[in-house]
Design a protein around this nucleic acid. Structure first.
Lengths: 129, 129
DNA sequence: ATGGGTGCAAAGTGTTTGCAAGTAT
DNA sequence: ATACTTGCAAACACTTTGCACCCAT
């Protein structure tokens, strides 16, 4: 891997993701970063999110529609509210026996799985009734 | 729900998805449909895929990057090859106790979950070694 | 006849990239 | 000094939409 530099912008992108503590999209990271450094560009934010995720400093959460990012953590699942789009960590532990079972039965070399629950968050659930 | 018509184009889109038996993207469906009706437009294919999925005639498979579609079937998981992008049905049964557990613990009203395994399919696995 | 559906092209999203200038090492 | 990074804008890939015409019911 080629040697990487620590630029002000890269540090800022990392700080923003860590400061939020939730699951921002690239565009939300851009907005937050822009509030601090009004010169930083979208391209730089996208590039640094990729760099940081590849390097393992943050996690990329692949969900339908848009990718999101979060602080580094153990493997876990997510809940996405189908009404308001909010994303939460799910309170169900990662089941790594599934990866072994799927590998054996399918003949694939399964590295991991991603599970996303869909439903209504407490607020939307209440508002809809 | 408003009354829907059965047009030649809508039937064609449905036929194409059923004929494939795999997990085509909208663009693949468009290509297949176009091979039969060289006048059908992309917009029509996209609109009909939505209509058919909403109506329950086909399933929409929400995966990262692009949505895919497949024949109507019971809930099940998918395997996506990280090398070649191929998508398969996973040989692991849908675990609906997870939805109940996640609902109880999180306070959300969970309707379902989607699980996608990531790894290398048998061909890519072999080719890479 | 009537309102849902179609083809077309333009507009939207979300993301990537080429390039010249800037900067961390 | 070197080559990784940046800002900018253009380009991309995928999808949605406005509109006038068409056709299934």
């Amino acid at each position: 891997m080629k040697k990487q530099r620590n630029t002000r912008q890269r540090q800022l992108v990392l700080d923003v993701v860590l400061a939020r503590g939730d699951h921002p999209t690239a565009d939300q990271v851009y907005a937050d970063a822009r509030a601090i450094d009004e010169k930083i560009s979208r391209g730089t934010v996208y590039r640094n999110l990729h760099t940081l995720a590849a390097r393992g400093d943050i996690l990329q959460v692949k969900l339908p529609d848009v990718d999101r990012y979060e602080e580094l953590a153990d493997r876990h699942y997510h809940i996405i509210c189908t009404e308001c789009g909010a994303v939460y960590d799910a309170p169900i532990p990662y089941d790594d026996t599934l990866d072994r079972r799927a590998s054996e039965i399918s003949g694939c070399d399964i590295k991991r799985h991603r599970t996303t629950f869909e439903g209504r968050c407490p607020e939307c659930k209440q508002r809809c009734e």
